[in-house]
Design a protein around this nucleic acid. Structure first.
Ligand SMILES: [Mn+2]
Ligand SMILES: [Mn+2]
Ligand SMILES: [Zn+2]
Ligand SMILES: [Zn+2]
Lengths: 146, 146
DNA sequence: TGCTAAATGCAACAACGTTGCAATGGAGTC
DNA sequence: GACTCCATTGCAACGTTGTTGCATTTAGCA
């Protein structure tokens, strides 16, 4: 993980947002999970640790994190994951394992340019790309060879 | 549009599915819309034409169409669009205009191969890609130059 | 024209998401 | 540390979206 919780806290402060207990709790849950979490997933996981947050609060916190690019919404599942790339060039993409559900974030400037160039052929001016590769992660691929 | 309603009807028959009045009605609505439609959008549009379908029926019909690749779910909005590419090589991608909401479907085998190759660098075996470019369509781009 | 499996409608429910407003608490100031 | 202020949170109520089981209808075929 290149982007730590402490980095996220600093970004919140820098933008004038308060670093509250609920926000730190949600950051912690997102940081531990390797899979996308729905707002209600976050609530359940916190509940198991004896922490309670109202679901409205969780929605608002996740919205904020997405606006600040501290987290992303994974489209295929609707869940949220912590961003680990920071300001790396190119749109942030995901590889989603269909077997274990784990998520890997990556980015590639060249791929983005190629994608935008293709759209240009249709007269379309792309501003960003949403992209998820669906398949098998390395370890699940080995298991599937049985 | 390269794929017509009649083609969809033939695919339904060929796979042993009945060509019912509700299915033809949903096909008709999807065919006319240039934007992704939610199941309830479909219900509203049919309602305006004096046709009634239960929402459960619409959900089931859209699920079927997606399984047969007669339609796709557009992830960013959650709506459904009719597929116009048929069996064209490469995963079917979308360009979504942020101003007018229109959808353009396209595919490119080379882009898919490049995307899979990049995933392979992480040990990930991609089986298909979900991809949406977000920006301005040709006509909205001209208007935005004001 | 009837038969039958597939498809639809209905009712009830479950999950997900939103809004307005009152209560709380982070962070700066004294 | 205590005080203050406004962002943030909790609560309650509601609206939308999606699901399940079962009775009824109908497309496709003999
Ligand atoms: Mn990211
Ligand atoms: Mn298609
Ligand atoms: Zn896996
Ligand atoms: Zn447009």
């Amino acid at each position: 993980m290149s982007l730590m919780i402490q980095d996220s806290v600093r970004i919140l402060q820098a933008q004038g947002y308060k670093v509250t207990r609920p926000r730190k709790q949600v950051l912690g849950v997102l940081d531990q999970a390797q899979k996308p979490l729905s707002p209600y997933d976050v609530q359940r996981l916190l509940g198991e640790r004896g922490k309670y947050l109202n679901h409205v609060t969780i929605y608002r916190i996740l919205d904020l994190f997405c606006r600040l690019n501290l987290a992303h919404r994974v489209l295929s599942s609707g869940g949220f994951v912590k961003c680990i790339l920071g300001k790396k060039e190119g749109c942030h993409r995901f590889m989603v394992c269909r077997r274990c559900g784990t998520i890997q974030e990556f980015a590639d400037g060249g791929l983005c340019r190629e994608e935008s160039r293709l759209a240009e052929d249709f007269g379309f001016h792309a501003e960003y790309h949403l992209s998820e590769s669906y398949g098998l992660c390395a370890s699940c691929y080995r298991l599937e060879e049985s």
